[in-house]
């Protein structure tokens, strides 16, 4: 009753926004923290897992020298990586969230909370996208790099790890940072399974007073600030990397 009493009239947009910020600041703060957590874990985890996927995917079968067993294992690995990427890129994350959360919930695992499910889904989803980014990075590396390494006596695997992957990953860094920005926004869909991210926090803050437009206007501003700052930080990092390279060459 106290809260309702101080709620500004309907046509006072700005003061309503201010009212919501003041009253529900703990909601918004928690929402931002969870959204950031989802994005950081999702992007970092996705990057690490995508490396495994890339290793599986870039295996080449030597028809003359590989034994039947290793040919089959390589084929299974490549097939898995391809299928994984197709499935996770080809379905909406909101659908993936529903299937994972409600698919595993019946096992009654005490730790399988909406947040854990959300972290899992955003990580698995980002893995597929970053794997695709790194793949195009690898395609951009001149074939001569691999040939030179092979001519010195390196195995294909060593040549990949020492020469091709480091260059491909470096070229992919801007796109990987972009995945982080995408995650800041797209993790909003995880509220569907009850993750208390910024979207759900805003929903909660407006559920009793129905000032939905004002509430989500605040959310929009916060999302914009997060993506804008991240974008700027990435730009700065790019410049720093360039500078470091120039210095190393001087």
């Amino acid at each position: 009753m106290m809260i309702l009493a101080s709620l500004p009239p309907k046509d006072e947009f700005l003061s309503t926004m201010w009212y919501l910020v003041e009253t529900y600041s703990s909601f918004f703060i928690r929402g931002v923290v969870i959204t950031l957590l989802l994005s950081v874990v999702g992007t970092a985890g996705g990057f690490i897992l995508s490396l495994f996927l890339t290793v599986l995917r870039t295996q080449e079968i030597d028809q003359r020298r590989d034994r039947l067993g290793s040919r089959i294992i390589k084929r299974i690995g490549r097939g898995f990586a391809k299928t994984y990427i197709t499935v996770f890129r080809g379905t909406p994350m909101i659908v993936q969230a529903m299937i994972f959360y409600y698919g595993i919930s019946p096992l009654r695992l005490s730790w399988w909370t909406p947040l854990v499910a959300g972290l899992t889904v955003v990580t698995l989803n980002t893995t597929a996208y970053i794997a695709e980014v790194i793949r195009s990075g690898i395609n951009g590396i001149d074939k001569g790099q691999m040939e030179a390494a092979r001519s010195l006596g390196f195995s294909r695997r060593d040549a990949m790890f020492l020469i091709v992957f480091p260059q491909a990953i470096k070229h992919s860094l801007p796109s990987i940072a972009n995945e982080f920005i995408v995650n800041l926004k797209d993790t909003a869909v995880l509220s569907v399974i009850g993750v208390f991210d910024l979207f759900r926090a805003t929903s909660s803050a407006t559920s009793s007073n129905f000032r939905i437009v004002e509430g989500f206007f605040i959310a929009a501003i916060i999302y914009l600030i997060l993506t804008y700052i991240t974008g700027k930080v990435v730009q700065k990092l790019d410049v720093l990397l360039e500078k470091k390279e120039v210095k190393a060459n001087a």
């Binding site: 020298r65 001149d142 001569g144 790099q145 040939e147 030179a148 390494a149 092979r150 001519s151 010195l152 006596g153 390196f154 195995s155 020469i163 480091p166 260059q167 470096k170």
Partner: peptide, 20 residues
């Protein structure tokens, strides 16, 4: 093959130095 290639040096038309 890898063992034998260590003893066979190769120089390419487009150099192929490791860029990293």
């Amino acid at each position: 093959l890898e063992e034998l290639r260590m003893h066979i040096g190769m120089v390419f038309q487009s150099f192929n130095l490791f860029n990293n």
